[in-house]
Amino acid sequence: MKTTTGTYLLLAMLHFPLLSPAQEIKADTIWNPLRPLVGHWRGEGDGADGKGTYEKNYQFVLNGKFIEVRNKTDYQPSKENPKGYHHEDVGYISYDKARKTFVFRQFHGEGFVNQYVLQNTSNDRRTLVFESEAIENIPSGWRARETYSIEQGVLKEEFNLAEPGKDYAPYTTAVLRKVK
């Protein structure tokens, strides 16, 4: 009896190292739809604040449990803003296991905090659509949507806003190229 129990215990112990990497691989594949975003991007855009140069960085942080997003945009001087305008935001994308989806929390230098949920990805996984489920420090009823399309090292980004009771309208669009 002791030999049989010992044999089963030994076999079980030998298999535990094999189970652990398999679990890591499964958890790691959750990030596959967002993996193409990871890297450093630069480009130009246009929108409500005028023409601007964009710099974005997506990187895994905190043991690969989150993607940190850092954005800097410098808008050129315009009639509405003769000195130009500098925008910064930082965000974190997490995987919500209970809802089985990604949540993107974005903190803006202007004081806005947007919380988005990934609504869908295209069949080819090249387009990601995040829609807001909460926005802090703005009148109630506003909605926001971030759409990212990635193909051959080019990131097309659309940011849309919707006033209460209205449809989404373009706010900014940008085209960025992966630099590393």
Score class of each variant (00 low, 15 high):
K97Y: 11
Y116N: 05
E68M: 03
T147Y: 10
P77Y: 11
R143F: 14
V175C: 00
Y95H: 11
F104H: 05
V154I: 12
D124P: 02
S20V: 09
D49Q: 08
A174E: 00
F60R: 13
V175L: 01
L9V: 12
P139N: 00
E163K: 07
L11G: 08
P170V: 00
V154E: 13
K2G: 14
K83I: 11
R99V: 01
E146I: 00
H87M: 04
N81S: 12
S132L: 06
E110H: 07
S149T: 15
E88W: 15
H40V: 10
K178A: 04
P36I: 02
G52S: 06
K83G: 07
G52P: 08
V175S: 03
F159E: 01
K2T: 10
A12G: 10
D49E: 12
Q76S: 10
F66T: 08
H108Q: 08
R145S: 03
K97M: 08
T53E: 15
G64T: 06
K26W: 15
Y116T: 09
L128W: 03
R70C: 01
H108E: 11
T73L: 06
P21T: 09
G91P: 04
F130Q: 04
M1E: 14
E146D: 14
L19T: 10
K83M: 10
T147Q: 13
K156E: 02
Y168P: 05
G64Y: 10
H15T: 12
F130M: 03
E146T: 10
A174H: 01
K180R: 10
N32T: 14
L9D: 11
H15G: 14
G111R: 12
L155M: 13
E24N: 09
N123K: 07
V90D: 08
E157H: 14
K178N: 02
V69Q: 02
F159Q: 07
P82S: 07
R70Q: 03
H40F: 11
A48H: 14
R105D: 03
S122D: 03
H87D: 03
F130H: 02
A174G: 01
G91T: 09
F130Y: 10
G45N: 01
K26S: 13
L118K: 06
P164A: 12
Y75E: 03
R70G: 03
D46A: 09
K180P: 04
A174V: 01
F112A: 03
Q23V: 15
T4R: 12
K65F: 13
G84H: 01
N123R: 07
E157N: 12
A48Y: 11
E136K: 15
H15C: 15
M13D: 15
L10A: 11
N137Q: 05
G64S: 08
E55V: 00
K26C: 11
E110S: 12
K2D: 06
E68A: 06
